[in-house]
Amino acid sequence: MKNKKLKEIILWVVIAVGIAAVVVAMIVAVTKQPSSSLSQGISSGDWTEGPKDAKVVLVEYSDFQCPACYYYYPMVKQLQADFPDQILFVYREFPLTQIHKNALIAAQAAEAAGKQGRFWEMHDLLFEKQSEWGESDNGIGYMIMYATDLNLNIDQFKQDMNSSDVANKIDNDISSGNNSHVQGTPTFFVNGKQIQNSQNYSGFKQIIQNALK
């Protein structure tokens, strides 16, 4: 009887230790995730918003069709509003074409709009209307509609969308993203260091404030 009781105690101690070990292992695994740095610096080919000599350079690798990117879109806007003179925001294309069927044409549309000087307008429009065009079978039709809304030269826009120039820009962004170990979207880099996306605005703002110190 006594022996049985002892066995029982040992069993539960072993289980408790086992569970504790799993918890510790999980914490270690999660905190050890390496953060990588940006492989390619900002160049004249990048789409940027904000002063060139800003203290904080915020680079986003993003996919116009990704819901999480849509979620961060207003946060970035808010950051730009809260730190107008201190953030240089850079947008790089990272379309996840395997899971988002219209991601690539959206990236092409933004780049083509950029050729006519309206990249950021298209960028905003694509995020704001993501639910409209995202899963549509007529993605191209929507892109042309948005280009029309932005008063772009449509013939030029269509031509640019399929140009090798635009394709190269997107490929270049994707490969610089891959080299920077971008694994999903959105991935942000603050002054060249990848950050852990915070789930709310105050966390994100704190990261920027820390970078400004």
Binding site: V30, T31, C66, P67, A68, Y72, Q199
Partner: peptide, 30 residues
């Protein structure tokens, strides 16, 4: 247990989860 432990640890550390297959982790968890 492993699944919810991962999410709990991530929540405590206020770091984002590595989202795969579906892209809505931030939206759901946020």
């Amino acid at each position: 247990f492993l699944d919810t432990l991962y999410l709990s640890v991530k929540e405590i550390l206020a770091s984002p989860v590595s989202c795969f297959i579906f892209q809505g982790c931030s939206q759901v968890l946020g």
